[in-house]
Design a protein around this nucleic acid. Structure first.
Length: 203
DNA sequence: CTACGGATTTTCT
DNA sequence: GAAAATCCGTAGT
């Protein structure tokens, strides 16, 4: 599979969010190779976007990664219990990113099952199988992504994104999930997902 | 099928 | 001290 280069990420964040659909995340950890296909993303559009951590150019210890180079993972803890994985876009000092909301498991299913439920993949019922990676917190749990992955370079060997075979699918968009506080930005159609894919988190 | 509340803790004000 | 880019179980339709 063809690895995505740095300049893929240094483009308009909405374009990157859309083009990330269908791409593969390859992550090597604990002697296991995890592969998932991205099926749902959300764009966070930086200093003007009230839903974005960097709204109004706010810079904190948590979000400083967004102000750095693109093609880097931004991971943070949400609601005290789950992690969310984002990919930083644009050039340095333009703090935008794409949240990876959901993915389809491709390889490393046994390990994902253990990470999520503490049991074998072949013991999972149908709901547990789709529940492996159909949400931002679930995806991180399945892949074992946590705080330590904040700042990981996606143009490296252990973790990177790649293009698969050319594949036809229809892209849907909608408003983003759980950002009611974002006022006039809460209805922007900046969430993208692959139509009819089983692992999309909602609708 | 949808709707609600509780869990849990880091981060920022 | 409040909020948070979530998830899950339970209850109701």
């Amino acid at each position: 599979m063809k690895k995505l280069r740095r300049k893929f990420y240094n483009r308009d964040t909405l374009i990157v969010a859309k083009e990330l659909l269908g791409k593969y995340i390859i992550y090597k950890k604990d002697n296991c190779e995890y592969i998932v296909k991205i099926v749902e993303t959300e764009a966070y559009m930086g200093i003007k976007d009230k839903a974005c951590h960097s709204y109004n150019n706010k810079k904190t210890k948590r979000n400083e990664i967004m102000y750095g180079n693109c093609g880097i993972l931004y991971v943070y803890l949400i609601y005290g219990m789950y992690y969310c994985a984002n990919i930083v876009t644009r050039e340095k000092d333009v703090p935008e990113a794409v949240l990876i909301r959901a993915a389809e498991p491709v390889k490393g299913l046994e390990n994902m099952s253990t990470n999520r439920y503490g049991k074998d993949y072949n013991e999972l019922n149908k709901k547990e199988i789709t529940g492996l990676t159909n949400g931002p917190g679930k995806l991180c749990k399945a892949l074992g992504i946590d705080k330590l992955n904040n700042g990981d370079d996606l143009c490296s060997y252990n973790i990177y994104l790649a293009e698969g075979e050319h594949e036809e699918f229809e892209i849907c968009s909608s408003s983003r999930i759980n950002i009611d506080y974002a006022e006039e930005y809460k209805d922007c159609p900046w969430r993208f997902y692959i139509k009819d894919n089983l692992y999309v988190s909602k609708k």
